[in-house]
C-alpha cells in the first residue's frame, strides 16, 4: 500500500498513525492525547461507551474536525486535512452509520454520486449511465463479492447487506484507498445481514485496505477485528489483541470497573443504553 517500504526501527511502517490527538469543543474535552496505529490489512475496532470520543476521533481522521493538537501520518508522511475532500485525497474514506445513500437512486448512481463519468455529445456532458452500471457491478464483485440482480432498482429496495455493500463500493472507489472507516456497520441489522456485513468488512481487508470499525457490539467486534482499542472519557484506555483477549476484559475497560466486572455489569448488547 505504502509506496516504498521505509523501515522504521525495524518495524514495518504503519499505514496510518495518529499521534497525541486532542480536541475540545468549548470547555469540553472530547478527545485527549490519543494515539492510534494501523497496519496494512488490519481491522481495528474502536469501542467505548457513548461520549467516549470515538466519533470525534473518527471525524478528525476523516477531515470533518481539525484537532487542537496532534499529528496524523499516512504511510509515514504527515497530512493536514481540513475537509472530507482532503481525507479522501490522502486515501481515507468513511462509511457512516446511515450509509449516506440516496434511497431513491439505484446503486450505480449512488456509487458514482458527485463523481459521474460523462460522455460528451456536441460538447455537452451527458452521464455515462451504462459505464456506471458496469463499473458498479465490477466494483461490487471485486471488493465485496456482492452481485446485484438488478442494478436499476432504487437502493431503498435492496437488503441491508446489499446497501452496506453499495456504500462500501462507493467508499472504495476513491483512488488508492488506504483506510476505510466504518461507523456502526452492524447497528440495526438482523443476524443474517450482520454476518454478511462482517464478511464484507473482511473482503475489504483482503484487498489490503486497513479498516477501522466503530461498534458497540463486542460480539461483532471480536468476530471481525484483529485488535480492539478501548476509549473512555476521550482517552485511550488500552488496546488488546482479539486473539488473546476476551469480551469480559474489554467490557471491564469500557465501563471502567475492576477485574471481574463482567460478572455483574452489562452485557454487550445492552451497552449502548448505558451512559
Amino acid at each position: 500500500m505504502c509506496k516504498i517500504g521505509v523501515e522504521m526501527e525495524g518495524e514495518k511502517q504503519p499505514l496510518l498513525a495518529m499521534r497525541g490527538i486532542t480536541k475540545s469543543f468549548g470547555g469540553l474535552r472530547a478527545v485527549t492525547d490519543v494515539d492510534l496505529t494501523l497496519h496494512e490489512g488490519q481491522i481495528l475496532a474502536i469501542v467505548g461507551d457513548n461520549g467516549a470520543g470515538k466519533s470525534t476521533l473518527i471525524k478528525i481522521l476523516t477531515g470533518v474536525y481539525q484537532p487542537d493538537a496532534g499529528e496524523i501520518f499516512i504511510c509515514g508522511a504527515k497530512v493536514e486535512m481540513s475537509s472530507r475532500r482532503d481525507s479522501i485525497r490522502v486515501g481515507v474514506n468513511a462509511v457512516y452509520q446511515n450509509l449516506g445513500l440516496v434511497d431513491a437512486l439505484p446503486a450505480p448512481a449512488n456509487v458514482f454520486l458527485g463523481n459521474e463519468p460523462v460522455r460528451r455529445i456536441l460538447g455537452i456532458p451527458f452521464l455515462d449511465n451504462r459505464r456506471m452500471r458496469e463499473e458498479t457491478e465490477r466494483i461490487l464483485i471485486e471488493n465485496t463479492g456482492v452481485k446485484l440482480e438488478d442494478a436499476t432498482v432504487p437502493t431503498l429496495n435492496l437488503s441491508g447487506g446489499q446497501r452496506q455493500a453499495v456504500a462500501i463500493a462507493r467508499a472504495v472507489l476513491v483512488a488508492d484507498l488506504k483506510v476505510l472507516v466504518m461507523d456502526e456497520p452492524t447497528a440495526a441489522l438482523g443476524p443474517e445481514e450482520t454476518r454478511n456485513t462482517l464478511a464484507l468488512i473482511r473482503a475489504v481487508r483482503d484487498r489490503g485496505i486497513a479498516v477501522i470499525v466503530i461498534s458497540h457490539n463486542l460480539e461483532h467486534v471480536f468476530a471481525v477485528a484483529d485488535r480492539v482499542m478501548v476509549m473512555r472519557g476521550g482517552r485511550k484506555i488500552g488496546e488488546v489483541d482479539t486473539a488473546t483477549s476476551s469480551g469480559t476484559e474489554v467490557l471491564g475497560m469500557i465501563v471502567g470497573s475492576a477485574v471481574g466486572a463482567g460478572a455483574h455489569a452489562t452485557t454487550p448488547s445492552t451497552l449502548g443504553a448505558q451512559q
Partner: peptide, 23 residues
C-alpha cells in the same frame, strides 16, 4: 470470500418487485 453472493430470499423478492413498482 469474493465469490460469496449475498442474496437472501427476502432480497430476491424485493429486487424483482420494484421493476413493476417503479411504474
Amino acid at each position: 470470500m469474493t465469490d460469496q453472493h449475498i442474496t437472501t430470499p427476502e432480497t430476491s423478492r424485493m429486487t424483482r418487485l420494484p421493476a413493476l413498482r417503479r411504474y
